[in-house]
């Protein structure tokens, strides 16, 4: 019991503390690749501290939803993070739900974020909410299909079982079904975290922005919570991707031997994935909004192929 609690707390701390760092690393790498100096990898922490110290401006038209949104988004994202395997295959909250719970906790956060965008009463918020919902309605089926593909291999939708089945099969990701599912989930990752072909995370001065449009009216500590939640969500999805498909160095349990080596592997794999994301962001231009469904249709088709080919191969 005690061990479980420590596990949960350790993963919570890792999740919350590591997330801004991942965002910072991606930003710095991107800046370097574009031969800019960049703000340094600790900048997201400084931003959060600054925002937490500031006052807030709340629109007059806003109801209680506006105030509740940052909390709901943050807590649901962190809870989803506790249900996925990070350092060990055993997820601390794995008993409370599997892959579906993770997807729908993230969905709950997104739902409230969209409500918050509408609630602020500004026209940009509504635009952002409608765009976010369009994209997530297309991204969610692709994500489900990809996760069901690995779930079939493991015989369970529990994340602990999924990651556990993958341990020891280092080259499993070379199987076509796994590869299709990986590609589908990678496309979903780009869409869900608002990365460049879909959304530009670096600016809130663009008419086609999605995530930034929804949180445009937020300021001070609420904005800090939302930004923190966004980077936690990014970390959760990245971890999901690498630990379901490429579980090198994942330990079966936290106290096996060396949770430290597990953390080391996690950081290495996250760094590699961050490099890939940076490359994609730098070499692609942002898509027009009406082109995004095409990208997600590709993700959906790949996910469907992955699921079907587990039966056919």
């Amino acid at each position: 019991m005690m061990a479980r609690l420590i596990e949960a707390l350790a993963q919570l701390a890792l999740l919350v503390a590591l997330a801004p760092l991942v965002t910072g690393v991606i930003r710095t790498l991107k800046a370097r690749l574009q031969t800019r100096r960049g703000p340094g990898i600790l900048q997201p922490y400084r931003n959060l501290r600054k925002l937490f110290g500031k006052g807030m401006v709340i629109p007059e038209t806003a109801s209680w939803i506006f105030g509740a949104t940052p909390w709901v988004v943050f807590v649901s994202t962190v809870l989803a993070g506790l249900m996925i395997p990070m350092v060990a295959a055993e997820a601390p909250l794995g008993l409370f739900g599997g892959a579906l719970a993770v997807i729908y906790l993230l969905g709950l956060g997104r739902f409230f974020l969209a409500l918050g965008g509408l609630d602020s009463g500004s026209s940009f918020g509504g635009l952002g909410s409608s765009r976010e919902m369009t994209i997530s309605a297309l991204a969610e089926p692709a994500m489900m299909l990809a996760i069901f593909t690995v779930a079939i291999g493991a015989g369970s939708t529990g994340m602990t079982e999924i990651a556990g089945a993958a341990i020891g099969q280092t080259w499993r990701f070379l199987a076509p079904a796994q590869m299709f599912a990986f590609a589908a989930l990678a496309l979903v990752l780009i869409a869900e975290t608002g990365r460049i072909p879909v959304d530009n995370p670096a600016t809130h001065l663009e008419l086609t922005m999605i995530h930034e449009a929804m949180i445009l009216e937020y300021s001070g500590p609420y904005l800090a919570l939302l930004e923190w939640a966004a980077s936690v969500k990014q970390l959760v999805l990245m971890t999901l991707l690498i630990n379901c498909f490429w579980p090198v160095g994942l330990q079966p349990t936290w106290f096996n031997f060396g949770a430290l080596s597990g953390i080391g592997w996690l950081v290495t794999k996250l760094l590699l994935l961050a490099c890939a994301i940076v490359l994609i962001e730098t070499t692609n231009a942002k898509m027009r909004l009406f082109r995004v469904p095409e990208l997600l249709a590709v993700a959906f088709t790949l996910g469907a192929l992955a699921l079907v080919s587990t039966f056919l191969f």
Binding site: A297, T301, L305
Partner: peptide, 10 residues
């Protein structure tokens, strides 16, 4: 259009 074409290809 492209999304439907991709689904048909699948």
């Amino acid at each position: 259009n492209v999304p439907i074409s991709v689904v048909i290809a699948g």
